[in-house]
Design a protein around this nucleic acid. Structure first.
Length: 931
RNA sequence: GGUCGAUUAGCUCAGUGGUAGAGCGCUUGCUUCACACGCAAGAUGUCACUGGUUCAAAUCCAGUAUCGACCACCA
């Protein structure tokens, strides 16, 4: 027998087109041999071999010289260290759907993939490995050796997520895979830096930045995650110099920074403290006299209304310090251990150890008043997940370019944000935009393309402010090209923020710096961007700025923001919670198509998605349903004409017209759902059509046409309709379930050797084009009437416990003109012996019947039920229920029960009574009808 | 504190002015010659709450409550 499912067969030695179909051999409906086919679809091997087939045929490769209209999309590059999670699955499935749909619509598609070097994340991983395996730090082995290690690591582990995307079926143009640290890409990064410096938008200065003590680098504001913390608020007192024995009380969460205190600030409007402004108070350790200053920032309502000022370790304090011309005393090392030799008790301690120790010291000195529990927000480093330390350091900053165009493009809809409300988030960020700290004290990344003249390096590196305006001529070399005389220069030690390369992604991937590129001409600006709303600031907005500034236009036209995936309890997916299922496991279990479809069908637009494995199971079941519909078709024989055309067929039945018309409707509805990026709706439409319309109705209605006693014409027509609809349907489904549709199309002969569904253009014409509209609507109406009638008759059977009986007969006295012609089909759908039109029929009294779209139909019961046995059964049942009703009534009639039982218990009892009584009435009615 | 969401069946979610829906789960009956990853029948709802607009509101407006996200934060 033919190996139809191709189970367990590799495709390595064989292209899919070369598989010989047993199609022409024709197997009768009653053939027993077919039952040897696997009953369930087994996706794993099928998916892997089709992916390879697409790759072999270069289906994903974009041709910049093509005449077709362009469609392009750049992948949000996953971290090179990344492992696929469900967020990636959702995001990339959407991109794949868009890309595949665009191909079907006749576009030349470029889906450009790649990975991001992910500065801190990657460096941290390799540092950890170095520590675990060799017990060394990166400083032990030096910059060059360390970078070598990172590259080694990248080569070894960097491709994991790419392999995983391939497993998912992503149709990326892998021949154009990019990495943000590719040599060509890096040139762009340096050039952009140099250009912005020369434009005066990049400058270097000593500022307060977010410092990560673990990674020992500055971070941008966006990389700081505020977290609610249960902290302590320490109330302490500073003695007034002029008035010994009198104290000023302050409250702080950070007593360990006390050594850096240079003032106490109060609100000038605060009457309690007004008289102290200008006086001096005693700082306990190291002992010093510090002034009381007035500043509007201080909130009189909070704590004691007096605030200790530590300009080196708090952003607000820093600003107050600037306004009041205060000294800045840094009391921490780069790793946030205390740097204060004057206080040996604290010197060298970790900041959190120092906090406890400082508090204890204050208590000893009698200066600690009380300690309160206090909830506050603490900024955490996104990567290292430790509290960041506000710290003054020398960093490079960027004043964002093209901010006005960027804000305008989104506000005015030149770039469409979907859902549109994210445009507001974009606007509010653009509104309060702060200069971007772009330097990082890391090694893994793009090194800042700034060289200092060797003989002046010390002065230059210590210069408080370094801009285009104040640099000494010829002392700096800022360029994408290193100096020609490297021996005279020293390069800046720092690297750039990862996002400083990411923001160039849409064009730096398409075009090398010095070359004209066909790619960029054909495919830039890109069409769609699909990403998460959590990186609007990190990435999306910045890409728009870079696009305007360096390419003179916007980088994409539409941005689709995906849902954030949560677990079933609504928690974020995270490694530490262990609530993040491995998509690869899910694909092995349910198939990539099942995972894709399940996720897409329920993914809400613009809201969080609660992931439930049951969704994926549903996707797999759906794949199986389609597979089995096709399997059924295969068993039914091969009598279909290859070029069946509904418009040329004169023997179409209502069910044929109905399903053909529904299929055309589906194609139209898909169009509008895609136009609005309503992916869940697209999925739902595909699901409903196949399951409800095609399988439950159409297939069941036409089964009679395929029985052994059917005529050749009946068979050919039905098979022809089946094939026309299924071939079209598989095309429509292809973006969601690419592997399955490719497999079935080939197996069914809808595609032939060397053809791919993914390359086949979606026809513009409908299946029913050319068919008389009146005929269509009449047919659809009749089909609808038959389906409705069938449902009512089934219902009637079930009511009389005859659902499983095949020998039930239905009799109509009158009916629509077509009833006689469709009576057999009706009987087939209902599972009845027959539906008979008999004008002379006089129903006996009590004969059950139903009024339907096909007229009133009766269901005579004689001979169907052993009346006496059924009577006995019903009597027994009725007796049982009567007992229950009696019990329940007794309970509710008992005053003590009603008064003392919990109200909900009484309510449940009442509900139960109603239920029992309803059932009783129903049974009594049935009993009455039994004669 | 500000902004934006969400609140519909036991669960996950559709539904944007016109008879409350799907899948899963549940109950009942079916190994019916594609499919038990299935078929058929069935039960299940104060559409969060309060007002308003309207002939008509789950849907539009206002407010309230709860949950969530983002932004800004009081040390």
């Amino acid at each position: 027998m033919l190996d139809w499912s191709r189970r367990g067969r590799g495709r390595s030695d064989q292209s899919p087109g070369s598989v010989v179909l047993a199609w022409g051999e024709g197997v009768g409906y009653s053939s027993r041999a077919m039952s040897e086919l696997p009953k369930a679809y087994e996706p794993t091997e099928v998916e892997k071999s089709w992916y390879q087939a697409w790759l072999d045929a270069k289906c994903f490769e974009a041709d910049p010289s093509s005449e077709k209209p362009p469609y392009s999309i750049v992948i949000p590059p996953p971290n090179v260290t990344g492992i696929l999670h469900l967020g990636h699955v959702l995001n990339n499935t959407i991109q794949d759907i868009l890309a595949r749909r665009a191909r079907q619509k006749g576009c030349e598609v470029l889906w450009l993939p790649g990975t991001d070097h992910a500065g801190i994340a990657t460096q941290t991983k390799v540092e950890r490995q170095l520590r675990d395996e060799e017990g060394k730090t990166r400083r032990d082995i030096g910059r060059e050796a360390f970078l070598e290690k990172v590259w080694e690591w990248k080569e070894k582990h960097g491709g994991i997520i790419i392999k995983q995307l391939k497993r998912l079926g992503c149709s990326c143009d892998w021949s154009r895979e990019r990495f943000t640290m590719d040599a060509d890409y890096s040139k762009w990064v340096s050039k952009v830096f140099a250009d912005l410096f020369n434009e005066g938008l990049i400058y270097r200065g000593k500022r307060m930045v977010n410092w990560c003590p673990v990674s020992r680098t500055a971070l941008s504001d966006e990389e700081v995650i505020p977290k609610k913390q249960n902290s302590k608020l320490y109330y302490m007192k500073y003695e007034l110099v002029d008035e010994p024995g009198k104290f000023l009380e302050v409250a702080t969460t950070r007593p360990e920074t006390l050594m850096g205190d240079v003032a106490v600030a109060v609100n000038p409007k605060d009457e309690r403290y007004g008289r102290y402004v200008g006086k001096l108070v005693k700082r306990p350790f190291p002992a010093a006299e510090i002034p009381v200053v007035a500043d509007d920032h201080v909130d009189p309502e909070f704590g004691t209304g007096a605030l200790k000022i530590t300009p080196a370790h708090d952003k607000a304090d820093f600003e107050i310090g600037m306004r009041n011309d205060l000294e800045i005393i840094d009391v921490f090392h780069a790793d946030a251990t205390v740097n204060c030799p004057e206080v040996p008790e604290l010197d060298g301690l970790d900041r959190f150890v120092a906090r406890k120790k400082a508090s204890a010291m204050l208590e000893e000195m009698g200066l600690l008043i009380k300690v309160e529990e206090h909830e506050n927000n603490v900024g955490f480093s996104e990567r290292a997940d430790v509290p960041i330390e506000p710290r003054i350091s020398m960093q490079w900053f960027l004043k964002y370019p093209a901010t006005e165009e960027t804000a305008k493009a989104v506000a005015e809809g030149e770039i469409d944000y979907r859902p549109a409300r994210w445009a507001k988030t974009h606007a509010s960020w653009m509104d309060g935009i702060q200069d971007w700290c772009v330097s990082r004290q890391l090694w893994w990344g793009h090194r800042i393309p700034v060289w200092y003249r060797k003989d002046k390096v010390e002065t230059l590196q210590e210069a408080e402010s370094l801009t285009l305006d104040n640099l000494g001529a010829g002392d700096l070399h800022v360029s994408a090209v290193p100096p020609v005389d490297p021996e005279n220069w020293v390069q800046d030690e720092d690297v750039l923020d990862t996002w400083f390369s990411s923001w160039l992604w849409p064009f730096a991937t398409m075009q090398n710096l010095d070359e004209d590129s066909d790619l960029v001409k054909k495919f830039y600006p890109t069409t769609d961007l699909v990403t998460g709303p959590d990186i609007i600031f990190f990435w999306v907005a910045r890409m728009i700025m870079a696009g305007y500034r360096f390419k003179g236009e916007l980088p994409f036209r539409n941005v689709f923001f995906t849902s954030i995936i949560r677990d079933i309890q609504g928690r974020k997916m995270s490694k530490s919670l262990g609530n993040s299922p491995d998509p690869i496991d899910l694909m092995e279990k349910y198939g990539a198509d099942g995972l894709r479809f399940g996720l897409m069908r329920t993914a809400p637009i613009g809201a969080d998605l609660r992931f439930d494995e049951a969704q994926v199971e549903e996707g797999r079941n759906f794949a199986n349903k389609i597979y089995n519909a096709c399997r059924f078709r295969r068993m039914a024989g091969s009598d279909s004409e290859v070029n069946f055309k509904p418009s040329e067929c004169e023997t179409l039945r209502p069910y044929h017209l109905d399903i053909l018309s529904k299929c055309d409707e589906l194609a139209k509805n898909q169009e509008s759902a895609y136009a609005e990026y309503r992916f869940n709706e697209v999925g739902q439409q595909l699901y409903d059509f196949l399951w409800s319309e095609f399988c439950d109705k159409f297939l069941e209605a036409v089964k009679g046409d395929l029985h052994d006693d059917a005529t050749q014409v009946q068979r050919e027509t039905t098979l022809g309709v089946f094939d026309s609809v299924m071939a079209r349907y598989l095309q429509l489904l292809h973006p969601y379930m690419p592997h399955l549709t490719e497999e079935l199309s080939l197996r069914m002969g809808y595609t032939t050797e060397g053809q791919f569904v993914m390359e086949k253009k979606l026809p513009v014409s409908g299946l029913l084009d050319g068919v008389d509209a009146g005929m269509i609507s009449e047919g659809c109406e009749q089909a609808a009437a038959v389906y409705e009638t069938a449902a009512k008759l089934r219902n009637l059977k079930a009511e009389y416990r005859l659902a499983a009986r095949k020998d039930v007969r239905f009799i109509a006295k009158t009916g629509p003109s077509w009833l006689e012609a469709e009576a057999d089909t009706l009987a087939l759908l209902v599972g009845a012996e027959g539906v008979i039109l008999d004008e002379s029929y006089i129903p006996e009294q009590g004969t059950p019947g139903a009024v339907t779209a096909s007229g009133e139909l009766f269901m005579p019961l004689e001979g169907l039920v052993d009346v006496e046995a059924e009577k006995a059964r019903l009597d027994k049942e009725i007796e049982k229920i009567q007992k229950e009703v009696g019990k329940s009534k007794g309970k509710l009639g008992n005053e003590k029960f009603v008064a003392n039982a919990k109200p909900e218990v009484v309510a449940i009892e009442r509900e139960r009574l109603v239920e029992w009584e309803g059932k009783l009435a129903q049974l009594q009615e049935m009993r009455k009808n039994l004669r």
